[in-house]
Design a protein around this nucleic acid. Structure first.
Lengths: 266, 266
DNA sequence: GCGTTCTTGTCCATATTATGGACAAGACGA
DNA sequence: TCGTCTTGTCCATAATATGGACAAGAACGC
């Protein structure tokens, strides 16, 4: 069913490992459901996004419901992450090192810039917003919340993260997300174009944000071994981010990104 | 392998549903790992607790590692919940209704009693500590942290929750936990004895707490439909909870439990 | 050193398990 | 009324996950 991984190209040490198709599929379903937040996702959408057949998704989802991992909203029939997931998450009580390291930078940049700041990490083929600071300027882009999850490539943060990794890896991820890009009215070619542009520019950018009339600028944050760990993003109404100010904001973000990179050295 | 559920006794609407053995097993493994918190659990312990064979557990655990759901600590070789679990949990940003409803009661009772207070929920066959308030008295029992997970029955909170459900359900859960009770130096018969005593007394109690020299008192909190939702516990050094004070503390806990029950009506 | 007893990790023939095509039944709109 | 969505179910079949047996490493005693 999935012949993308050729056995010859052993890019990293970790090799396939078989005997757990069902578990992998269940997790793929869970990640799609996570993107739906509290509202959840209709079954058909999960089928589309995962590429699995409907009976399979149906069976997986309902087993997960019995186990308390997934909930079904009676009103809408949509499926969402269940409350047993946060319960399992409590096993890791402490906030991540990144969150701690990024905190002062977010604070500083937010005060300096005045617009909303986001910290976004990569998780699998998705971006996940893990922190947010609201700026002081009276008009703020608040549509993206902590926990927001999107396919890598559709947000400026996603573009930044893709730009920070080897081109081949980025291409693979975008290809894997192809089915899900439609929902965001974009496609693999467009995304890869934006990634190339971001790489050249030194930061990610979206003139037309996911929210109408907004513009976003994102810098990437790399781990000591050179892989992208996160992105720091400023979103504002487009008129507030003209060419001149874009440059200023980008410089602040780049400065803070380097500071965070220093702070997360193990 | 598991013939405990007879097809004839349709106790609730929800019936078995098959075709996902592997997923259920993976979740059983995850729940055991969650009990190990940050330190994790050795593979052999997971094998014991789940009753699965070692090759099966090994395969499941390593697939979950590849998926980022589980981590292996190189130093100790122990397995623990991975960081992708909190990431999935972010999909449910809002704190639970119970946590909100219980907050003022915990605050009030903590001030009044002076010892550490715990809010514990049932999750599957486990208890899970979801909130804690440290009292003002200089000696405090702090060994139990938010996120602590134990088989239902080994803590006074677990006994209280079991006491609040139909005797038959309680027996089933204790039987299911039998293998895991050994690690806490107790057994099914002892636990069921404590449950009966708690039911008679009106609250759960442990003269000899899990921590040496401590004593705990727990009241149960029921949902509107009469099922136990949580337990509220006071833990203190034993000398601080003599018969007289036990009575006083229990009365405060019972009072606050009723208040929380009012607050969580949907 | 060498045996004993833990642990974790791997192999692969096998039967159990998950799979998905086909069908059914609702919900909504025309 | 029909057409087109959706979700849910059945079951013969192929593919998958299973676990017994084996291997290798770590920790301890002597």
């Amino acid at each position: 069913m999935d012949k993308t991984t050729s056995p010859k190209s052993a890019r990293r040490m970790t090799e396939p490992r078989q005997g757990a198709q069902a578990i992998r599929r269940a997790l793929a379903v869970l990640r799609i459901l996570a993107a739906g937040r509290e509202d959840g996702v209709p079954l058909a959408e999960v089928v589309r996004a995962t590429g699995l057949t409907r009976p399979t998704v149906h069976r997986i989802v309902h087993v997960l419901i019995e186990e308390g991992i997934v909930e079904r909203h009676d009103r809408t029939g949509r499926y969402a992450i269940g409350n047993q997931v946060p319960e399992l998450a409590l096993a890791r009580a402490r906030p991540s090192r990144l969150l701690i390291a990024a905190n002062p930078s977010l604070q500083r940049a937010s005060t300096e810039i005045g617009d909303t700041l986001f910290l976004t990490v990569r998780t699998g083929n998705d971006t996940l917003c893990v922190d947010r600071r609201i700026g002081v300027y009276p008009i703020q882009v608040l549509s993206i919340e902590v926990g927001a999850r999107r396919p890598l490539g559709v947000s400026s943060a996603g573009v930044a993260i893709l730009a920070a990794m080897p081109a081949q890896d980025a291409r693979k991820i975008v290809a894997a997300n192809e089915k899900r890009l439609e929902a965001y009215r974009t496609d693999a070619a467009t995304v890869l174009g934006q990634v190339t542009a971001a790489r050249r520019r030194g930061y990610g950018m979206r003139e037309i944000g996911l929210v109408q009339g907004t513009k976003s600028i994102s810098t990437w944050i790399k781990t000591p071994d050179g892989r992208p760990a996160a992105a720091m993003t400023v979103s504002a109404v487009r008129t507030r981010l003209g060419p001149r100010r874009e440059q200023e904001v980008a410089e602040i973000l780049l400065r803070e990104a380097r500071i965070i990179e220093q702070a997360i050295r193990s």
